[in-house]
Design a protein around this nucleic acid. Structure first.
Lengths: 232, 232
DNA sequence: CCTCACGGGAACGTATATGATTTTTCAGTA
DNA sequence: TACTGAAAAATCATATACGTTCCCGTGAGG
């Protein structure tokens, strides 16, 4: 037949279909934290048997999106305050390292794009929409760290972000006051990268930036514990 | 009944049995990197069906110990030079952070124990056994970071070490010359912790220490590329 | 006559379905 | 509150379908 060498249509295995289906639902918040995942139901919905679904669930468990209890079942992971804090701390460590390692690889275009995003953020300081602002923030940082040549480090950064689930999209809903300061710090980070500052300075700047947001969050939610949380 | 709350004997599920069985074999190097894992064979060996084995394999895949190819099968992950380097870089980032966060939590006993381990290492500098030395090195660092209150960070450190597989036990087989310097740097790190130095100094010291070992390794194995590897 | 490329098919192993078994949960009752 | 039984759901075994790999035989070219 005429087809050429592209006969391989690459049908996803059923486990992978289930995996993506569930992940999508979680991302869209159709399955909210605490939601009980019943294998048979999902299997029915996807027109397959429970075996592949089970496998998908185990994969998602390994990623931390789902918690699983023997003979009981799976539910979408809860992210409580304490988890939020530990995860954000991990992110502040690995993302700052990734950004520093990425700095020398960034192109002119990357920097332009990052600056553009930050300018949009600045322009939205009035008429503030926390969710949109968080999304832009996410995008800004992603541009800066995604050229990091250490693939494993990148994987960890991304996986920690997905671990946070929908909270990642609403950081500034908790601490709107940080927004202005955040934009300014972004500018500072861009400056350091552009003038090819030492990598450790870039790393420290990003870490300070994240730490600032986290501290603001902690002080806002738990003014009493603020001092008790260990930081770097 | 008299028993108390420990009636639960907690029989492991078959998947978990398989999981631990395989992991153990890999750790003992009975399954060496590249080894082909045949589900049915393992299932037979463990007197169970392939389904739980399959699940165990997928879990190990998520941890990075096993690589899996659709419709082909599973094999124990290879760790090549490049992976070694990226993983060690990740470790240098996360372990140093974990150690710093752990520093204030360490007890007198912890420090005594760490110092004892380092003294044993020092005493073995003559009659040098790389594997034993690597194991002691591992133990030393584990004592220092294991009190880190950020559980997630600890998980990442540990998982990166297991990712390295048997290479983690033989670092000093590649670069024996680093041994003496290593012991000295351990002493320095202990000093910083004991005199309650700022956390960032502790973190930097650990990172320098790891970076030193990694550089020594790179220079030894690939004298040409030494300059090309990005570092912090 | 030897070599090597191609193609068919058996052997091996994975992917998924179905059904039996076990565990947990929950409602109803003493 | 404690106990019992039934329903729901997970776990695993067995069976079958499907995809890959490897080997071997055939035929063309050197």
């Amino acid at each position: 037949m005429a087809g050429g060498p592209l006969n391989k249509v690459k049908t996803l295995s059923k486990s992978q279909q289930a995996y993506h289906w569930i992940k999508e639902r979680i991302a869209q918040q159709e399955f909210t934290p605490g939601y009980r995942l019943v294998l048979a139901t999902i299997a029915g919905e996807l027109d397959m048997s429970v075996v592949p679904v089970r496998e998908a669930v185990r994969q998602l468990e390994a990623e931390g999106l789902i918690t699983f209890e023997r003979n009981v079942g799976a539910r979408v992971s809860m992210v409580d305050d304490s988890q939020y804090r530990t995860t954000m701390q991990v992110i502040s460590v690995v993302e700052s390292a990734a950004t520093a390692l990425s700095a020398r690889e960034l192109t002119e275009a990357d920097l332009r794009q990052a600056r553009a995003v930050n300018e949009i953020m600045a322009s939205r300081l009035e008429r503030f929409d926390p969710r949109a602002f968080s999304a832009l923030n996410q995008e800004f940082h992603h541009i800066l760290y995604c050229r990091c040549p250490n693939a494993r480090l990148l994987e960890i950064v991304e996986s920690e972000w997905t671990r946070l689930g929908h909270l990642r999209d609403s950081i500034f809903a908790f601490v709107p006051d940080r927004a202005r300061e955040s934009v300014r710090e972004h500018e500072e980070i861009l400056g350091l990268i552009e003038r090819a500052a030492p990598l450790n300075e870039i790393e420290e700047a990003v870490r300070r930036h994240r730490k600032g947001t986290l501290s603001a969050f902690i002080e806002h939610e738990h003014p009493d514990e603020a001092a008790g949380f260990p930081a770097l």
